[in-house]
Simulated assay, not measured.
Amino acid sequence: MQQLSRNHRDIAPASARDFPGPSSCTPSCWGRRPLTDGPMTAWIVLPVSLSAFSITGIWIVYAMAVMNHHVCPVENWSYNLTCTEETAKRGFPKTCCTLQDIPLISKCGCYPPESCLFSLIGNVGAFMVVMVCMLRYAQVIEHSHHGWTNTSALVSGCINALGLVMVGNFQVDHAKTLHYVGAGVAFPAGLLFVCLQCVLTYRIAETALDYWMAHHAAAICEWVFTVLVLVYYGTFTYEFGTVNSDTIMATLMKRSQHHHPGAGVIMGGIGKGVAMGCGARSLKSPGGSSTSTHLNCTPESSAML
């Protein structure tokens, strides 16, 4: 019995040391504490709901805008200067589209009834973004990271939410300035939040899955972003179909006028002191065979160069 009692006294401190309670656990051991709070796992619904609600919502807004003839379908690539007659029936896509009918996300949410849903998505989405930012901020603190990176991520996420509220409630056709201010705030702040969270995910990583999220998933996102940027560069093929020697000369003329304002461009001596390109010339428009007058011999036309 004495031997058993001695063994029991030897084991008890070890077990208490391996599984510290709330009173004995210091901030340095928070990141190693076993997660025993089962009901708290319900918070995983929040980020999933944010993504599902927002993505589904904006596609519903797009469908409503198309059916109400407020924008043209995304598969449309033909636009006219004016549309004098609308022959499409209500509930079907537009048959005559102008540049005002391009299905941008903001344009899809300009007019009722889809504008009401667009505002709801912006407000609810912004609230959920703030919740995600605050919970993530607390989670990082729990892992004993109190640096400026975590604080900056929280601030940028909240600014992103503020921009979303402005975008959702100030439609681009009715309050253009406020809408663009909101978009100009939301996009950079959201990008900064994503970058800072990638850094924080790497710093607090403890398990193999954590490191997978910080390295492997980041590599995939990097590849996707790089490919999209390169694809965008490739779209300049359309515009560059009209590049010729006059295009290069326009750049030289602009630089010359910048250094010698009001003097014009002197080519080959005083006898040729006439602005290059003076007089009408024809230029083939990109993607077509039609021609249009590009430049006239007027001061206004020369200044445009």
Rank of each mutant, 00 (worst) to 15 (best):
Y180V: 09
I44P: 00
M213W: 05
C29N: 10
S49V: 05
S290H: 14
L295I: 04
T242N: 03
R136T: 14
C110R: 09
A126M: 08
H294F: 13
A217T: 12
L305W: 06
G91H: 05
K107I: 04
W30L: 07
T242S: 11
L135C: 06
Y233N: 15
T87S: 13
P112M: 08
A303S: 04
R32C: 10
V185P: 00
M131Y: 05
T226L: 15
G269Q: 00
E85F: 03
Y233H: 14
K176C: 06
F193R: 03
W43F: 04
C83P: 05
Y211N: 09
W43T: 06
P39L: 03
M304G: 11
I55G: 10
M249A: 05
S292A: 14
S256Y: 03
L228V: 12
T56H: 08
A52I: 03
S23P: 01
L99Y: 09
P299C: 00
F118I: 01
F92H: 13
L228C: 14
H179V: 01
V124E: 02
H216D: 07
L117F: 01
G273S: 10
R281H: 12
A186L: 13
F193C: 07
H258F: 07
V199G: 03
L162K: 05
F19N: 11
A126G: 06
Q139C: 10
G268Y: 13
A205F: 04
R6S: 09
G288R: 15
S152M: 05
M166I: 04
F92G: 06
V155T: 03
G234Y: 00
V61W: 05
C133P: 02
T149Q: 14
M249D: 03
N150M: 05
T56K: 09
I102W: 03
N150H: 00
I121R: 06
W148T: 07
T87E: 11
S24K: 10
V229G: 06
S245N: 12
T41E: 06
A189T: 02
N68I: 01
S282E: 15
H260P: 00
R32G: 02
N68M: 05
I248F: 12
G38C: 11
A16K: 13
A126T: 01
I220W: 11
C133T: 08
C221K: 09
L192T: 14
Y62V: 02
N123M: 10
D246Y: 09
S49R: 04
H145L: 12
S292K: 12
P261F: 05
G109Y: 03
A14V: 13
M304Y: 04
S54R: 06
A16W: 08
C133E: 14
S23V: 12
L283A: 08
H145C: 15
P47Q: 02
